[in-house]
Design a protein around this nucleic acid. Structure first.
Length: 668
DNA sequence: GCTAAAAATGTTTTT
DNA sequence: CATTTTTAGC
């Protein structure tokens, strides 16, 4: 395909010396389509890559190819879904080529936005010290403002802060006005619409005044910066001459716009995605972004990766069947040149305990057969589905890590400690001040606000606290001021500052959580170990907001020194992009997976189907889909027992049906 | 205006 | 069922 003439000048610089001079033998390492994707460096490129077709491989080789062609690694931007994914790809590229690949700019849209806004945000009135609000923080703000506006006192019931936060966020991520969103998605809240709009206006103003940005603001402000500040846009597109985006099916309109703005000057943009794996529409993602890419970039080449390298054919037969029934068929059937492999199993268990015991027992057998634990994963729709299994695994002495769901960073005590560090980094962070002050005995919401306005009245928060009129909590306030003075100095490492905060916080912890403070102390120690890895406070705080450690609470790590490694438990969402020798999917029950929240809505049901597809396509050699029957759900007041509709009607040749009985599995 | 105990609520997935 | 909101008491 011939490049357009006016853009040719840009492209000429990277016409490589000659194929033979490359150190890596790309043609040999890649199949034809992957090779095409990895070596088509200039111009817009869309890669449609089915599950397990080696898209990561293509991306890794493409990074190496760019660097080998003489492109400055710092001029390459690799946007991925998690920062771990980016780091992993760059590590692999470095192994292929050399350490230069580590200098490629990689991360999530949010972390990229963070970097850009800290550097260039001043143009929009954003200070480089801004604080990132996580979901809980923004809910706190919403709650505060709701009370301030007197909306909690009205007799008509007002939605809770989680719901409000979700609405505000969805409006941004779906690029829709809040009023319109209420109309279509929350008709039952129509009578509150005016109040909600007012609250939203206050929420926006509040964040702006105090240098607070929530997750959505990061994207919005980056977009605004690129649209409104020509000079910044030029600098960025000059700096990042090659843009690559992974998991494009899970980007929303805002992110697509950012990609477009970044790439408009040079058109060197490659996106990779699979519309059948779009599972984040609840966050505003729209797989139609993939189709629209060609509209944004009319000269885009399209490359399809269709050959699967991951799974055996019997597994592919099942995953193909699952996705072929999608309302909107994506017209693809993956195939593998590999032969052999057993049909996946659909396992019916009498109870949840049976299901857990089956998984444990099978894992122990696999271990005997020589499959290491890190090559095995158990996947589920919702985090809590693994609770019973976790107990059973502990009993069986099988070490595991759990990904997805509650993170230890979200526990109250960790957030408390973090808040102290955050007010040091950004003294205008009223949310954190609020959190810090509420810990003092005798200080409630009202007093806290009073103290905060006093803090804001002067330049030095500690001095303002010391000068605050004497009240019952005077001693506590002085202690807090003392702590702030001790940790104010930038010469201290984050770990040193954290240890000071913990010393101060320990008595408070014991007072507030009389019963279970030892457990929480352990978490603080764990957190201290994490803090050791950071040199600057800002980077610690940013990471905790954008890429918090995924480990769930504490004691699992103790068993990690078993050198056999760990089994993975994961939500399907957190399993995206990963693969294992053996995969168990548990709770494949109608009402759980698909989740009963999404039983009424066609679009959401389709997303549940794609979710099952993603789960099943993680498996390389063995796939077990298990479901318990006779589950009484108290909340619903009904019995769950039908297998997931996505697998129920598959023919027994595709999916062998098995009923579990005591101490043996019997084909049904 | 704060705290602690009683009542109600609504349950997912994540940057 | 555990968290969050409401209410009572200090």
């Amino acid at each position: 395909m011939a490049p357009e003439p006016e853009k040719y000048a840009l492209r000429r610089e990277l016409v490589p010396p000659r194929e033979a001079t490359f150190r890596i033998d790309y043609a040999r390492a890649l199949n034809a389509a992957q090779y095409d994707a990895a070596t088509s460096l200039a111009g817009p490129l869309l890669v449609v890559a089915g599950a397990g077709t080696g898209k990561t491989r293509a991306l890794v080789y493409r990074v190496a190819r760019l660097v080998e062609s003489g492109v400055d690694p710092a001029g390459i931007l690799l946007l991925t879904f998690t920062r771990r994914a980016a780091a992993e790809m760059l590590r692999r590229a470095s192994q292929l080529l050399d350490g230069r690949c580590e200098r490629v700019a990689g991360g999530t849209f949010h972390s990229f936005a963070n970097t850009v806004l800290r550097r260039h945000g001043a143009a929009l009135g954003i200070a480089p010290t801004f604080t990132i609000l996580d979901r809980g923080d923004s809910e706190d703000v919403i709650n505060l403002l709701r009370a301030r506006l007197g909306l909690d006192k009205k007799e008509k019931r007002f939605p809770r802060k989680q719901v409000i936060g979700e609405m505000f966020s969805m409006a941004v991520n779906k690029s829709r006005a809040l009023a319109e969103l209420i109309d279509s998605e929350y008709p039952h809240l129509l009578e509150c619409a005016a109040d909600l709009l007012e609250l939203q206006a206050h929420y926006t103003a509040y964040k702006h005044e105090r240098q607070l940005l929530d997750y959505d603001d990061l994207l919005v402000k980056l977009r605004d910066l690129l649209v409104d500040r020509e000079s910044v846009r030029q600098r960025l597109s000059q700096q990042y001459r090659f843009v690559m985006v992974d998991e494009y099916q899970d980007t929303n309109a805002l992110q697509a716009e950012i990609v477009h703005l970044l790439a408009a000057a040079h058109d060197n943009v490659m996106v990779v995605g699979d519309e059948a794996q779009s599972i984040y529409s609840f966050r505003g993602a729209n797989f139609r972004n993939i189709m629209d890419f060609v509209t944004w970039f009319p000269t885009a080449r399209v490359i399809k990766l269709e050959e699967n390298y991951r799974s055996t054919q019997p597994i592919l037969n099942v995953t193909n069947a699952i996705i072929s029934r999608a309302r909107e068929s994506f017209g693809k059937a993956l195939f593998t040149p590999k032969t052999g492999g057993d049909a996946p199993l659909l396992v019916m268990a009498e109870t949840e305990q049976f299901q857990s015991r089956f998984v444990c027992q099978r894992i122990l057998e696999l271990r005997e057969e020589g499959v290491p634990l890190p090559e095995i994963a158990v996947l589920f729709r919702s985090s809590f589905h693994s609770f019973d299994l976790e107990i059973e695994l502990t009993r069986a002495g099988i070490p595991f890590v759990k990904r997805g769901g509650f993170k230890f960073i979200e526990t109250a005590h960790i957030k408390d400690v973090l808040a102290h560090l955050r007010v040091v980094a950004n003294p205008r962070d009223a949310v954190s001040w609020h959190r810090v002050l509420l810990l003092l005995e005798g200080v409630g919401p009202r007093t806290s606000e009073e103290v905060i306005s006093c803090i804001f009245a002067g330049a030095d928060p500690a001095a303002q606290l010391e000068a605050f009129p004497r009240r019952s909590f005077h001693v506590e306030l002085q202690a807090l001021a003392g702590l702030l003075r001790r940790i104010a100095d930038d010469a201290h490492t984050p770990a040193e500052r954290l240890s000071e905060v913990c010393k101060y916080y320990e008595p408070i912890l014991k007072r507030v959580h009389r019963e279970d403070y030892p457990k929480r102390l352990k978490d603080l120690e764990h957190f201290a170990a994490i803090a050791m890895r950071y040199r600057s406070l800002q980077s610690l705080l940013t990471d905790m907001a954008l890429e918090p450690p995924t480990d769930s609470v504490g004691d699992v790590l103790a068993s990690a020194d078993d050198n056999e490694g760990l089994l993975t438990l994961s939500t399907v969402h957190s399993a995206k992009g990963l693969e294992w020798h053996t995969v168990f999917i548990i709770w494949a029950v109608d009402g759980r997976f698909p989740s009963f929240y999404n039983l009424n809505n066609d679009d959401e049901m389709e997303e549940e189907r794609r979710l099952m597809y993603v789960a099943a396509t993680r498996a390389k050699h063995h796939l077990y889909i298990a479901y318990p029957i006779n589950i009484y759900d108290r909340g619903l007041g009904m019995v769950l027992g039908k297998p997931s509709r996505f697998v129920d009607d598959l023919s027994p040749e595709l999916l062998r049906k098995v009923t579990l009985v005591e101490d043996a599995a019997v084909t049904g």
